[in-house]
């Protein structure tokens, strides 16, 4: 060990590593837009990722089947008895049906809510890190996107918001990411809370509804939507379903575990809300 610390290169590298780590930690905490180098690199990587995503989707379907075989078998038995014909049809044209469904839903959404200015985009890659939940889309500043804009699916389900972008790409931080939070409302009771990402829940596609009053009427099975408070998302966008309610450690309030309605792991087409939510009519009120 003494020999190692006597090595000038080692000491130099150690000093650089520690200094840069600390400086970057501070800089990145206040970072609001992409660096020039980051943008250039992503512009090069983006089209290539597009091709790889196509391959990834094919393989994902293949391996996903084997990974979930037990669950699928059980579910399959139920579905077989109830919807035998329908299942056969779906299986036959699963790939094209899914894409058609996405596109149709996106079109219907923009027609149904004309006050929302929407830009459609395709998911081209997903986060390689285990610490951040995000994906990259194929639209950027050239298409009028800005950091902070909300991203939804064609079924009017909340996905997340743009956290970083370049000229031809944008990074969407997903609502299950620990850095994401959104003001939410329980549709049935009208109770308000904050839906936040949580690392311990994000791997299961879940997030947390915090700051719910102890006297609130919330029950398991309640659905949540955006409240419109905070100015990022218009109100009325579906978030997910409450699957568990627990008291906070202090006992003053309670929190709920929410299963997101968005199929974040498999979604391929998304829509970005490009106008100011305050100027647009609430979704569902047109």
């Amino acid at each position: 060990m003494r020999k190692l610390f006597g090595n000038r290169i080692f000491v130099l590298l150690l000093t650089i590593t520690i200094s840069v780590s600390v400086v970057l930690g501070v800089i990145n905490a206040t970072k609001t837009k992409s660096t020039f180098m980051g943008n250039v690199a992503m512009v090069v990587i983006t089209p290539l990722s597009d091709a790889c995503t196509w391959v990834g989707r094919k393989v994902s379907g293949f391996f996903g089947y084997f990974g979930d075989i037990d669950e699928l078998r059980e579910e399959n038995e139920k579905l077989k008895s109830e919807k035998k014909e329908l299942e056969a049809k779906i299986r036959k044209s699963e790939g094209t049906d899914r894409e058609n469904k996405d596109l149709r839903a996106l079109l219907e959404l923009s027609e149904a809510y004309p006050s929302l200015e929407l830009v459609s985009a395709e998911v081209i890659s997903r986060s390689a890190s285990n610490w951040y939940e995000s994906f990259i889309i194929d639209k950027g500043t050239a298409d009028g996107l800005k950091i902070g804009q909300g991203v939804i699916s064609g079924e009017n389900v909340l996905l997340g918001r743009i956290s970083d972008l370049g000229s031809t790409w944008a990074r969407v931080t997903v609502l299950t990411d620990s850095g994401h939070s959104v003001s939410a409302k329980v549709i049935r009771s009208g109770d308000l809370g904050i839906v936040e990402g949580d690392l311990s829940l994000s791997k299961d596609g879940q997030c947390r509804l915090s700051f719910i009053s102890k006297n609130s009427d919330i029950v398991v099975g309640d659905y949540l939507e955006t409240s419109g408070l905070g100015g990022v998302y218009p109100k009325g966008i579906e978030i997910g379903k409450v699957i568990e309610i627990k008291p906070e450690v202090q006992g003053i309030s309670q929190y709920a575990i929410v299963e997101t309605s968005a199929e974040i792991e498999t979604i391929s087409k998304v829509m970005i809300i490009t106008n100011n939510p305050a100027e647009s009519t609430a979704v569902g009120e047109e």
């Binding site: 990834g56 393989v59 890659s125």
Partner: peptide, 8 residues
Amino acid sequence: STTLFTAL
């Protein structure tokens, strides 16, 4: 890393 392995 950003495509295939996100599915695995």
